[in-house]
C-alpha cells in the first residue's frame, strides 16, 4: 500500500505516542478531562470528515452522536447486552441512521442542507423527549453497575477506573485517526475535496457526486455515533441532552477552531475548547456566550481555524 503524505503520517504517529505517554504524567483529574477530549475529538473528526473535507456543513450531527448513545445504551440498559457488543450495536445504529438520513438530505444543497439536517436532528431530539418513558428524557438513564465493567480476553476491564477509560478512549481515537488518515489522504479523500471545491466539475469528470457525498456522510455519521456510543457506555449515562442542538454546535465549533479539512484540527479544537469551557464553567452558563462569540469571531476573521491557517501559511501538507 502506498502511504500518501508521509509528513502527516509521521506527525500523527508522534501525536499518538504523545497521547499514550500522557497517562504517565497527568493527574487523575486531568486524565478524566483528557478522556473526554479524546472521545469528543473522535466526534469532531467524524464531523470534520463531512464539513471540512467534503464541504457539507451539517447542523444536525447531534442526531448521529445520540444514535450511538441510545442504540448502545438502551440495549445495555434493557437487555443487559455486554459492553463490547453494545458498542458495536451503537456503531451499527449510527451507520443505519446516517445512511437513511443521508439518502434524504443529500438531495439538498448549501443553506437548505443546513436547515434540513437541523430539522431532522430537532425531530430526533424531540422524539427522545416524547418517548421519555423509555429513554428517560432529560433525566436520562444511568446504566446499572453490572454494565460498568466487562470481560475481554480473560481480562476484566472496569469502566470506573480512570486509566482503563483513558486507554480505551485512546485506542478508539487511534483507530479512528488511522482510518480517517487512510480515507482522507488517499484517492477517496481527493474525491471528497473535489466535491468541496467544485461539485459540478467533479460530476462533469464522470464521478457520481451523490454517491461520493453519501459515502462521506455515512462515514461521518458512523464515526460520530461511535464517539456517542463510547461516551454513553464509558460514563454510564444516556440522556436527551446528547441529542440537543448544542451538541451539533459543539462539533461544528471544535472543527472550526481547530481547522476544517485538517486531520488533526478537530483534536486541537476540542482540546482548546474543552479547556476553555472547563475554566469558564465556574461562571455558570457563561460558556454559551463564549461559544456564541467564538462562532462569530471565527466566521469573521479566522475561517481556516488554527491548523488551517498554519497550513495556508507554512505547511501545505497539513491537511
Amino acid at each position: 500500500m502506498v502511504l500518501h503524505n508521509k509528513k502527516l503520517a509521521a506527525l500523527c504517529l508522534a501525536v499518538l505516542v504523545l497521547l499514550f505517554a500522557l497517562q504517565f504524567v497527568l493527574s487523575s483529574y486531568m486524565i478524566l478531562a483528557a478522556t473526554r477530549i479524546l472521545i469528543l475529538a473522535v466526534f469532531a473528526m467524524g464531523y470534520n470528515m463531512l464539513m471540512g473535507y467534503t464541504g457539507l456543513l451539517s447542523l444536525g450531527h447531534a442526531m448521529f452522536f445520540a444514535a450511538g448513545v441510545y442504540a448502545s445504551g438502551m440495549v445495555t440498559y434493557y437487555f443487559g447486552v455486554s459492553l463490547p457488543l453494545a458498542f458495536l450495536i451503537g456503531i451499527l445504529g449510527a451507520f443505519a441512521a446516517s445512511l437513511i438520513i443521508g439518502l434524504l438530505v443529500l438531495r439538498t444543497q448549501t443553506v437548505s442542507f443546513m436547515i434540513v439536517t437541523l430539522m431532522f436532528a430537532q425531530a430526533a431530539y424531540l422524539t427522545t423527549l416524547y418517548f421519555s418513558r423509555y429513554t428517560g428524557g432529560d433525566q436520562g438513564l444511568t446504566l446499572p453497575t453490572s454494565a460498568r465493567s466487562f470481560r475481554l480476553f480473560g481480562q476484566i476491564l472496569d469502566m470506573t477506573s480512570d486509566l482503563t477509560r483513558y486507554n480505551i478512549a485512546f485506542a478508539v481515537f487511534a483507530v479512528t485517526l488511522i482510518g480517517l488518515y487512510l480515507i482522507t489522504q488517499g484517492p477517496i479523500g481527493r474525491l471528497f475535496v473535489a466535491v468541496r471545491e467544485n461539485e459540478d466539475r467533479t460530476r462533469m469528470l464522470g464521478f457520481d457526486t451523490y454517491r461520493i457525498k453519501l459515502v462521506a456522510f455515512t462515514v461521518s455519521g458512523t464515526v460520530s455515533g461511535m464517539a456517542g456510543a463510547l461516551y454513553g457506555l464509558m460514563f454510564g449515562f444516556v440522556g436527551s441532552s446528547f441529542a440537543a442542538f448544542q451538541t451539533s454546535i459543539e462539533a461544528l465549533l471544535y472543527t472550526l477552531i481547530g481547522g476544517p479539512g485538517t486531520l488533526l484540527g478537530p483534536l486541537l479544537g476540542t482540546t482548546v475548547m474543552t479547556m476553555l469551557i472547563d475554566r469558564l464553567s465556574g461562571l455558570t452558563t457563561a460558556y454559551l456566550v463564549v461559544i456564541g462569540v467564538l462562532l462569530i469571531v471565527v466566521t469573521l476573521w479566522f475561517p481556516a481555524g488554527i491548523l488551517g491557517t498554519i497550513r495556508n501559511r507554512w505547511l501545505p501538507w497539513l491537511k
Binding site: 456543513l57 447542523l59 448549501t110 443553506v111 443546513m114 454546535i249 461544528l252 472550526l256 452558563t285 457563561a286 454559551l288 456566550v289 461559544i291 456564541g292 462569540v293 467564538l294 462562532l295 462569530i296 471565527v298 466566521t299 469573521l300 475561517p303
Partner: peptide, 21 residues
C-alpha cells in the same frame, strides 16, 4: 462576511447564544 449564506447561519447561531445569555 458579505452575506455568505452558510457563514451567515453560523454567525447568527452565535448571535442567538449571545442575545439569549
Amino acid at each position: 462576511i458579505d452575506y455568505n449564506p452558510e457563514a451567515t447561519i453560523v454567525a447568527t447561531i452565535g448571535l442567538m447564544y449571545i442575545i439569549q445569555q
